[in-house]
Amino acid sequence: MPTVWRRPPLITNPRLRWAVYLGSLTYLVLAFASVDVNWMRVYEGLDRGLRFVKGFLVPDFVSRWGDIAQGMQESLTMTVTSTVVGILISVPIGIGAARNIAPLPIYLVCRGIIALSRSFQEIIIAILFVAMFGFGPFAGFLTLSFATIGFLAKLLAEDIEDIDEAQAEAVRATGAGWWQVVNYGIQPQVMPRLIGLSLYRLDINFRESSVIGIVGAGGIGATLNTAMDRYEYDSAAAILIIIIVIVMIAEYGSSIIRGRIQ
């Protein structure tokens, strides 16, 4: 009887295995070597970075409070409205994109919409919408709604594809119609996760709203951008602190709600 046992390797062919190992290692070494670091520039930059950080140590909420409040209000409005609209649109698309319940043509159309929405980064869509509808929160609202559809519909569709088929089959066996099967056999199974994902998306949309503001889509991002452009690091610091606090509140709140709905 043999006394030694080894786990079978992932790649059985030893030559191929070692070729893959060596190839990966060579690539990594070359890739690191190609990163060009200008150490002088880093040294000079440290000083500027320090000035930046110093500005942040004394946040100034007061002198630009009017702008901050307005930007915040725009951002929050944008976040909530785009999340609600995004959810309303993404639920039917998500149902249509679940292979186990949707007929093939509908499935393909819905998957197409999802792929389109997911293939563009928020910033790029924001630039497009700003060009189409002008500066301001409306472009931001459209951007975030569009991005929400790709995110929620995809995850909802995948969740529907993962359901326990037996429960849906049992409802179908009673003579229930298609919508009744969705309402009784599928919705109860995916609802907790859908609520969790929606809250998570609310989080993301708020953070994104402060990023897309930089390209002109309104909100607190625009205010932040203006403050940075004017080298008012103290005001910028105040804005960042407010963003961090709101994100933390949203995070905490959504974790409580998600814990309750299981």
């Binding site: 037996a166 429960q167 049992a170 066996a173 009673t174 003579g175 229930a176 056999g185 109860p188 199974q189």
Partner: peptide, 27 residues
């Protein structure tokens, strides 16, 4: 045609009453 399943196949997150009433869905 009523059907009774292996592993019950109840809709787990619905109440007992909703599960029983789901037998009426076709009506």
């Amino acid at each position: 045609i009523g059907m009774i399943f292996q592993e019950y196949a109840l809709v787990e997150r619905l109440t007992v009453m909703e599960n029983v009433l789901s037998g009426r869905l076709g009506y």
